[in-house]
């Protein structure tokens, strides 16, 4: 099945949003990735708004969660409205977000120290926002995540937790939570910048192994994609497209 052109998807999104102004919350809103294989694995055809999602980096990047942050930034870039970003420590470098198409002007940062989750919930109860992102280190209890999920459902705000951990592939990140989807992003080696001249120095587009390790009402899956471009869209890797469908 051919993927709809990104521009058309964008227009559809916008039309749907205009229709929703009078019936806020009634329609199931979600942000499609624009890649059929991934969107079909998700029950709502994309990242559902008004729900809690988790993203973490895999392997040695679990601590800094750079790949997970770019993945999240790509999703947020395709939404409109202010974002609350709850930090534990300030190591996020805002100019880096523009690489995934997210304008840092939209973000209000809150350095919450140990109170990341309560501040996130506070943000989720404020209807003026379009998304709340929080960086959480350590365990997340089922009760705490359910509170966040309920708060997100009430206001229809997209809630994203970036799970970080100083440990390499911390098992605490695999404990059950109330999140609707849970993503693991691992970096993959990228192909040479110029496929016809592999010896030319330079960097091609980053590649990710995108693992959907949990999905409520859907099947987990795994895809190889190209990292978000300047409009926040993932790219499908052409030479591995068949493999990724099979893996799903």
């Amino acid at each position: 099945m051919p993927a709809p052109a990104p521009a058309i998807a964008l227009l559809r999104e916008r039309i749907a949003r205009i229709g929703r102004i009078h019936a806020r919350g009634s329609a199931e809103r979600s942000i499609p990735f624009g890649i059929d294989a991934i969107d079909q694995a998700l029950p709502t055809g994309g990242i559902r708004q008004g729900a809690l999602h988790e993203a973490a980096s895999a392997g040695a990047d679990t601590e800094h969660a750079a790949a997970a942050t770019l993945f999240i930034a790509g999703i947020l870039a395709r939404l409109d409205g202010p974002i609350l970003w709850v930090l534990r420590q300030a190591d996020l470098f805002a100019p880096g977000l523009t690489a995934a198409g997210l304008n840092p002007d939209r973000i209000v940062f809150a350095e919450a120290g140990k109170a990341v989750l309560p501040v996130m919930e506070e943000g989720l109860r404020h209807p003026g926002l379009c998304a709340v992102v929080a960086e959480h280190t350590g365990r997340l209890s089922l009760v705490a995540s359910r509170r966040l999920q309920l708060a997100a459902e009430q206001t229809g705000i997209l809630a994203i937790l970036i799970r970080r951990s100083p440990g390499f592939d911390d098992p605490a990140l695999n404990e059950p939570t109330a999140a609707v989807t849970r993503w693991r992003i691992a970096a993959l080696t990228s192909p040479p910048a110029l496929p016809h001249a592999p010896d030319t120095p330079g960097l091609g587009r980053t590649r990710w192994q995108l693992n959907l390790t949990r999905c409520r009402g859907g099947e987990p899956g795994s895809w190889i994609t190209e990292a978000c471009d300047a409009t926040g869209r993932l790219g499908l890797v052409s030479d591995t497209a068949d493999r990724s469908v099979m893996a799903a």
Binding site: A66, L70, L92, F93, P95, G96, T98, N103
Partner: peptide
């Protein structure tokens, strides 16, 4: 506004 978009910048510094 006025964020430079053309320079490669990391997301974590």
């Amino acid at each position: 506004g006025g964020w430079p978009a053309d320079l490669p910048r990391p997301v974590r510094l």
